[in-house]
Design a protein around this nucleic acid. Sequence first.
DNA 1: GCCGTTTTCGGCCCGACTGTTTTCAGTCG
Length: 581
Amino acid sequence: MKNKEVVELLREIAEYLTIKGESRFKISAYERAAHTIENLSEPIEEIDAAGKLTSLPGVGKSIAEKIHEYLTTGRITYLEELKREIPREVFELMEVPGIGPKLAMRLYTELGVRSIDELEEAARQGRIRKMKRMGVKAEQKILRGIEIYKMDAGRVPLFTIRPLVLEMVSYLKEKTGIEKISPAGSFRRWREDVGDVDILVATDTEGDRVIELFSTADWVHEVLWKGDTKCSIVTPSGVQVDLRVVKTESWGAALQYFTGSKAHNIRLREIAISKGLKLNEYGLFREDTGKKIAGEREEDIYEALGLQYVPPELREDMGEIDAALRWDLPDLITQQDIKGDIHMHTTYSDGAGSIRDMAMKAKGMGYEWIVITDHAIGLGVVGGIDLGEWRRQLEEAKRVEKEVGIRIFVGIEANIMSDGSVMISHPDMDFVVGSIHSGLDGSRQKIMERYRKAIFSGLIDSIGHPTGRLLGGVRPPMDMDMDELLSMAKEKDIFMEINSYPNRLDLNGPNVFKAKNMGIKLYIGTDSHAPMQMENMVYGVHTARRGWAEKGDILNTLSADEIEALVGELKRKRASVSVSY
DNA sequence: GCCGTTTTCGGCCCGACTGTTTTCAGTCG
């Protein structure tokens, strides 16, 4: 499947066209086509082979030809011409905030600047102020931009910034008494990583005070700028946080606008135009009279456009607009639907809490049941349990179950070994999660062979953290074929895990979406190694929501009795597999 | 470059800010 490669090439063309100063409509045409292909579930090769490329939204004759050329020859002549025309170094200059395609190209050609370091040197030497339509202020702005660029932490995983952002919101609410304060942007959409964070405040009179409070608090490493309605700061960890103050009459429109995504918003504004309306961050207006018809509440914006309200997690222009127009959005799973947690560790392996500690925490969270899955032997460093230890754990769990008053199922997290064998599985176990913990850098073929052997052995009930990735640049996903893995899971009727350890989120939203559409059942596992970590369920729930999951798609919503019945079935299935222990 | 139950040509999402300028282009979100 070459969809990803095609998407990247189309985006690259768009970037080059931007620098060339081509019509912005031509540029967005390439971006739109890339977006369409990015969200395609079938291989682009098949669509091309069927001669159906131009039936894709945003793909016309010209782009279809370029895609076809790439798929048949491995290159796009048009892109190669662009590369010859425009030096690659210009892209680096555009990394600096305040420098766009035009200025980057001028700096390159007029001053011969080839890197950000050379740019800084040119600015310090006062060479920039001598350019046409540039001055001392513009030069200083570039130096400031370079400073911000150097401070920028880039995109960071959501979990690294979420606690601080929640603290900011509750601090401002508490100090000002203002209710309408909310994060927006990709943070509110629960993207797994965020660039900068937007916090929105609605107040008609206290804007100055809010900005003063925000810009002088402990979380400020540096104030980037401060005005009447906007303030930007950088946290000690290098994340930029923007605070925006809006009027209460525009709260809903602003929240909608700043939550994005950009593609989602563009679609909404197109719908507005088709109805003789205009949508911006202040409200929804009639084009003819300028009369405002919505703005104070976000829900009203969608309704006035004839759309069902779209939850933030779905606003990625991945089909949610069409579904909302049909009033046919999924009834997304919520935290309140969760009745239990599958996949957690105790002191029997590498967890920090006893069975009782974990049970008490689950009880406190209002759960009916938990499934404990300690590591099995075969995982060198962690010191997993063998069958004898597992039986002792089962005995203890039965005692704790009565004492705490919550159903405790005892499964195991079995290792899928380098040869694809499963270590260990037994018909008495309530649930067997199969996970790869070693050889994650193996070839795609090798990884898929391991998965295939493990799944078709009939010894495992689910796949844990399927890609093995760790967010924040710690570990990339394994080289694997997710579509093939899901097909195998479907064929053998096993479950897929949404691991909600915050640095995993594995499966992620798009893969949850795929699995759901294939009819594969999913569960959320916190993979907790301490009682507190069970609260990470919220990350799993929102990841599931980003994958359009409903209550019926997720095992955690079953009652204790329903889980017991399911576990009984799984045990019978495993017992029918002949294997020697 | 794409697209069309008003269109095969003339549109295409919206607004704020900034710096260097007398009317706007470039950049950003």
